[in-house]
Design a protein around this nucleic acid. Structure first.
Lengths: 216, 216
DNA sequence: TTTGTAAGTCAGCACTTGTTTACATCGACC
DNA sequence: GGTCGATGTAAACAAGTGCTGACTTACAAA
């Protein structure tokens, strides 16, 4: 019947059981997903292209075909993270909402989608282009947080407030990193959303208290 | 910092390979210092043994002679960081004191001694022994913070308090990481102790408010 | 001086790793 | 059928990269 191409059967977690014989787009996507996880978990230089290809169930050479180089794949992964994190899904204009979203972003499995995005922003490849993407994404993300905390967009760019937002971001990143770390620091690593919401709420509120000129 | 090692002409462009004083202890120390900086800045797998040796002005093979392997040198560096951070210099029993110490630890050049120690704790080599050192050091450091915040040592080990201390630690680590990152995220990267003390104080106080049952 | 030993040097092996090159295969269109 | 471009595969290349073992040198005891 179906001339199964056995070497192309890939994902245990992916469901494209259909004979994806020759689909450039799908192959690119597989490499992006696998690369994102590897880069986020192991860092850039620890990640081997053969591992990524193996995870994706794809030949190694295709990384170079579709992304030019390991660097190229990394930048592409970073771009997907940027698009993902840059998406201001809805009007998050309350501190409660920000706290809830942040908690959800952090808690969750260390290799979950959201955590991977954050970790990716901490992984450097030494490339200037990739660094620029990371910097812009981080800056924009912190800016979003200050705005979401209820600050007016214009006032949300003052140096003091940006610093505070970036400290809040540091907390998120630090937690994500420690949780994903191989140290297994307890109770942080195993803490669930319920455990983290209290401390996180305290931190965010202490840093980004509601706008001074407004409600309060 | 260390009493200048006599007849060890290393620092500059090593041209005179003739005058290599034969002091095993000094050589070990040179390798530890160079290794600590490289590992902390670039991560484990990005760091090449030849670079460390070059920084130290020492032959590559001596890494293997004195530390067995690259891994061995990394573990030794980690141990020095543990000893450094584990040193409870004085009775730090006030929140003010903790905030001041934390601020001093964080602010300072990204390649300063103190920051390097923190960054080292985040660098994984994949080795189990190194991971255990990192975990114990991190745990002990967080514990110290909760005690320094004024909690009684016995109550300082409750899960909830430990979690809060570890979140505070996450903030420190996240800031250190972002500051040392090649992204150059502003204003965080260039923020001085004066700028950071306010936000940091807010975070630490929000997380580790003075003991409830005691004084106050 | 001779000799023993610790400290340091040197060349290169065995292996990894990103990349490239040459070839095979599929799908479509004439 | 036959050609051809897109897709995928396998092998190999070139530049590292950690590590080793034989060798040399400084220092000091005998």
């Amino acid at each position: 019947m179906s001339p199964d191409s056995p070497s192309l059967v890939v994902g245990d977690d992916d469901l494209e059981t259909t004979v994806r014989s020759r689909d450039a787009g799908a192959t690119r996507q597989l490499l992006l997903t696998a690369g994102r996880r590897r880069f986020a978990q192991d860092g850039y230089s620890s990640t081997k292209v053969r591992d990524i290809a193996s995870d994706a169930g794809v030949n190694v050479a295709l990384i170079n075909r579709y992304f030019g180089s390991k660097e190229g794949l990394f930048e592409a992964c970073l771009a997907t993270a940027r698009d993902e994190l840059g998406r201001t899904d809805d009007a998050t204009t309350s501190l409660d909402n920000l706290v809830e979203k942040t908690t959800r972003q952090i808690s969750g499995p260390p290799n979950g989608e959201r955590t991977l995005m954050l970790l990716l922003l901490l992984r450097s490849s030494g490339d200037e282009g990739a660094d620029r993407i990371r910097r812009n994404t981080l800056r924009s993300f912190a800016e979003q947080m200050s705005v979401a905390a209820g600050w007016a967009p214009e006032s949300a760019r003052s140096d003091d407030l940006m610093l505070r937002a970036q400290v809040a971001l540091s907390t998120m990143l630090g937690i994500a990193l420690l949780r994903a770390s191989s140290t297994g620091l307890e109770p942080l690593t195993s803490a669930g959303a319920g455990d983290l919401e209290g401390p996180l709420s305290d931190v965010i509120r202490a840093l980004l208290e509601p706008p001074p000129g407004r409600g309060a």
